[in-house]
Amino acid sequence: MSTFYSKKKFGQNFLKDYKVLMNIINSAELKSSDYVVEIGPGKGFLTKAIVEKVKKVVAIEVDSSLNEILTSKFQSYNNLEIIYGDARNIQIEIFEKYKVLANLPYYAALPIIRRFLLAKNKPSLMVVMLQKEVAQSMVSKPGSSSLLSISTQIYCNPKIISYVSANSFKPKPKVTSALVKLIPYQIPIINIENEEDFFEFLKKSFSTPRKQLKNSIENGLKISSNSALEILAKSNILHTRRAQTLDINEWYLLYKQWCVFREQGDL
Score class of each variant (00 low, 15 high):
176 T>A: 10
185 Y>D: 02
182 L>S: 03
143 G>I: 01
27 S>A: 15
91 Q>G: 07
88 R>D: 01
200 E>P: 05
127 V>D: 05
162 S>C: 10
12 Q>K: 12
263 E>I: 04
83 I>L: 11
130 L>H: 09
84 Y>N: 09
92 I>S: 08
241 R>P: 01
145 S>I: 04
252 Y>N: 12
21 L>M: 09
97 K>L: 04
239 H>F: 08
54 V>W: 13
249 N>L: 02
47 T>I: 09
31 K>T: 11
238 L>N: 13
259 C>L: 14
246 L>D: 02
20 V>Y: 01
147 L>Q: 07
87 A>M: 07
56 K>V: 00
217 I>D: 00
110 L>E: 10
195 E>A: 14
117 L>E: 08
44 G>V: 03
6 S>D: 00
18 Y>K: 12
243 A>D: 05
32 S>M: 06
86 D>N: 15
162 S>M: 12
54 V>M: 13
77 Y>L: 09
181 K>G: 03
204 K>V: 00
206 F>T: 07
32 S>N: 13
64 S>T: 04
180 V>A: 12
32 S>G: 06
18 Y>W: 08
151 S>H: 06
242 R>D: 05
229 L>H: 01
262 R>W: 08
178 A>H: 04
205 S>C: 09
103 N>A: 05
84 Y>S: 03
55 K>E: 14
23 N>S: 15
79 N>Y: 06
71 T>C: 10
95 F>Q: 05
46 L>Y: 03
107 Y>G: 01
112 I>W: 15
183 I>R: 14
13 N>A: 11
249 N>V: 03
99 K>E: 09
147 L>G: 03
56 K>T: 05
202 L>A: 04
125 L>F: 06
201 F>C: 04
102 A>S: 10
30 L>A: 02
199 F>M: 11
206 F>A: 08
101 L>A: 06
173 P>Q: 09
40 G>H: 05
58 V>N: 13
120 K>I: 02
213 L>C: 13
87 A>Q: 09
248 I>C: 01
68 E>R: 12
10 F>T: 13
165 S>C: 07
169 F>W: 14
228 A>L: 10
245 T>I: 04
21 L>V: 08
144 S>D: 06
170 K>Y: 15
71 T>G: 04
96 E>F: 15
228 A>P: 08
242 R>W: 12
58 V>K: 14
15 L>H: 07
87 A>N: 07
69 I>W: 07
221 L>D: 01
75 Q>K: 15
184 P>N: 06
250 E>A: 06
244 Q>E: 14
250 E>I: 14
13 N>G: 10
212 Q>V: 05
38 E>A: 10
5 Y>D: 02
115 R>Y: 15
127 V>N: 11
2 S>M: 05
56 K>I: 00
10 F>H: 13
59 A>D: 14
227 S>K: 08
219 N>T: 12
221 L>T: 01
155 Y>C: 06
188 P>S: 07
90 I>P: 09
255 Y>C: 02
